[in-house]
Design a binder for these strands. Structure first.
Lengths: 123, 123
DNA sequence: GTTTTGTTATATGATAAATATAACATACTG
DNA sequence: CAGTATGTTATATTTATCATATAACAAAAC
């Protein structure tokens, strides 16, 4: 999988990297058991520091997207704690939906947008 | 409206403040034409610096949630550029939905969560 | 034994966030 | 008119975060 970074973005590099990998899992470019490049290899490929990749991996582990073994490396492994996932999703959605309500975006429009995005992911 | 801040949060103070105000508008605690406290008053009430409040107000103006007049102060005024709002919403939703897919949260569960949150807002 | 892995430690420069003082222009208040 | 309160701008300082750099460690693989 190709992992790119936008150096002009206002998003932190390790956050961009984390999101790219999550998007990769969602689109099934990355599957359970797949291994990611080592922190040093990926850092060199992208052209960033090893610790930045390490931080992205550490966050992904903490959030339940992969496991990190000393010699197998970074392996996609999904922790399906749905209660936790739903709780986190609720928190993230709340502000977004509040914005939508302010802008007079209807419930139907939101549902439609969700469907469009889900279709893009090949669901 | 009561505007509180969590000093232990990892979110920037001005972002927290911005989100609180957006939530206030969505729940109709704040309505079109209502005025917010002056930057100095609110800063003192919360216990933060004037410029932090000023930044939150400036962001809210830029995002189309209020206008800032020299003597009326900060007034709730919604810019209903729905195209822009939908575009921004799409971008914010994409990563969230990718996370949901990874966690095996179904399309129906997402729609249900949206409805729950919308109901909370009194829609 | 050498290599590769994630991991930790420490230091440094760069950028952003928050604070502190000060001043300005404008409109309301008395 | 003087005084007050408003957002706004400017400048400086401190603090926190991000990214980098170098180094070292422990454990499994070869």
């Amino acid at each position: 999988m190709l992992l790119e970074i936008d150096f002009n973005s206002d998003e932190a590099l390790y956050i961009q990297l984390r999101n790219r990998i999550i998007l990769g899992i969602a689109t099934e470019e990355l599957r359970e058991g797949d291994t990611l490049p080592s922190v040093r290899t990926l850092a060199e490929n992208i052209g960033i520091n090893m610790h930045t990749v390490n931080k992205a991996y550490a966050v992904l582990r903490e959030e339940g997207f992969l496991t990190l073994d000393r010699h197998r490396g970074a392996v996609i492994a999904l922790d399906l704690d749905k209660l936790r996932a739903l709780r986190e999703m609720d928190e993230m959605l709340r502000v977004i939906i509040a914005r939508a309500i302010c802008k007079r975006i209807s419930r139907e429009e939101i549902h439609r947008l969700i469907d469009e995005i889900m279709d893009d992911f090949g669901g």
